[in-house]
Design a protein around this nucleic acid. Sequence first.
RNA 1: UGCCCCGUGGUGUAAUUGGCAACACAAGUGAUUUUGGUUCACUUAUUCUAGGUUCGAGUCCUAGCGGGGUAGCCA
Length: 567
Amino acid sequence: MNEKSESSESASHKNFIEVEIEKDMATKTELIGKHVATRFPPEPNGYLHIGHAKSICLNFGLAKTYGGTCNLRFDDTNPTKESEEYVNSIKTDVQWLGFQWDKLLYASDYFGQLYDWSVQLIREGHAFVCDLNAEQMREYRGTLTEPGKNSPYRDRSVEENLDLFTRMKQGEFPDGARTLRAKIDMSSPNLNLRDPVMVRIMHAHHHRTGDQWCIYPMYDWAHGQSDSIEGITHSICTLEFENHRPLYDWFCKTLKIHHPRQMEFARMNLSYTVMSKRKLLQLVTEKHVSGWDDPRMPTISGLRRRGYTPESLRLFCEKIGVARFSSLIDVIVLENSIREHLNPIAPRYMAVLDPIKIVLTNYPEGKEELLEAVNNPEDPNGGSRQIPFSRELFIERDDFMETPPSKFFRLKPGGEVRLRYGYIIKCNEVVKDSDGNITHLNCTYDEQTKSGSPTAIDRKVKGTIHWVNARQASHVEVRLYDRLFLSETPEDAPEGKTFLDNINPDSVRTVTAVVEHELAKQEPGARVQFERNGYFCVDVKDSQSNAPIFNRIVTLKDTWAKIANKA
RNA sequence: UGCCCCGUGGUGUAAUUGGCAACACAAGUGAUUUUGGUUCACUUAUUCUAGGUUCGAGUCCUAGCGGGGUAGCCA
């Protein structure tokens, strides 16, 4: 049973679900000789987001840990909201995350079985056809504090129920005219037990069963039964289904079928992010983002396009843990997970996002030399490359300050800085146009300080900055993404405002960067580090051949920014 | 308002099930560093409150306080 510690994570502790599963498998007689069976059961009515990733990692992870199985099952019981498009995107996302299901299944596969079981419950007096409309049913249900009243149709004979239910199936009645309800207890303190609707009439085309059915089961009357049919041992879902568990149990018990154990965990809340399908949809339809796969979206497809790796998302899900307390995860944890994955593997390049020119006045005009640059200091086998160096270069505008604060280790008038892989230079003159804007900086370089040369060791400077050779620079589009929301909890908007008012107006900034030649040749999907800037990914959708567009996945940690902000 | 669930450093999770409160991240300090990155070291707690049981309580009991869920023919 030590497979858990064999997987990549470092001796992590068991979560409460693992503890319970191990207890169940060891003690429950009906589970003896069986393997752990879980499932990931999305409704195909939207795109998967990072919150689903938690559930996916949990369910598939459990199966892996205990040598069991995990199915992908679509809970497609509401044809008006579902489509093939969503089915396909969900399959893509699950596989991209690195998981392979044991079986691919649909709740709609079980409509026939569910119908037969409905008939069984009617025969046994556990279900009845009700003629109350939606509004009347709400009245009869009672409230949180008052018990409900029995439906006037509750005591119909088995024969009448059977007849009516058959005719419901045959399409004799319009939508909403009747429902099949479980006969439980209208005075139960748990509202889910007040004779819940099992089957409703819906003359709608289903993306898989077509027009075969005009009655469709409700979630409660499909989910547990599907679990049961598939031999699921542990049915793991989020906390909002907690109050449904007694009903889940009631159906299995009353039907006398295999009875999986439902366990609930807290859904993920991420700071500076909204996660509800409704709000994500609103962001898309109202064009606050470019689509479901906009790199700022918390959808799997958005994170993928942004440049997040499956490994980083799995790592993230491992880090946040699983519990029953509804917590708020700091988005920094997400950002760190991609830094952690990319740091040892992403090749480094120099790219200047906001260029300012420097002229090395003592460097011979027309001379050019090649400097050796390490591809990745974290990777001993990463090798090196040659980059051209000459009299005119670009550096980052932020790396020069005319009147810098203390502890500014970069270029300043009269100050020195090292050009990465090159020389130490000194800024002698700030050249401005008539409007007072800096046009370029006149600097001198010290030949003795060339990187790697024995004489270079003699002198040290505090700062090293990146640069790009002016004459041979390539120009590429770079999209600088930031958080989509300004507020830690965007949903908490003040009176009269909504989460949309918390949108960050600068969540994306597009710039043309001057970069090393090598960067212009990167293929879509490639992930690199721009030294001192961050990790970037070549956009898969908008890049043209020989014209990559870079998405900033995440900046590097920036302790200078912290120091500067304090001052 | 009824019922259900949950409260452990700033954040997220642990604690051999009643026996020295631990890990990661964040924050801070220092070291290393030709990325203000990486790496390394060190620093940060009345376990929501009040009672109770016990030799001993984060863990069990009671009450309070706080947070979440729940009144679709959605899932």
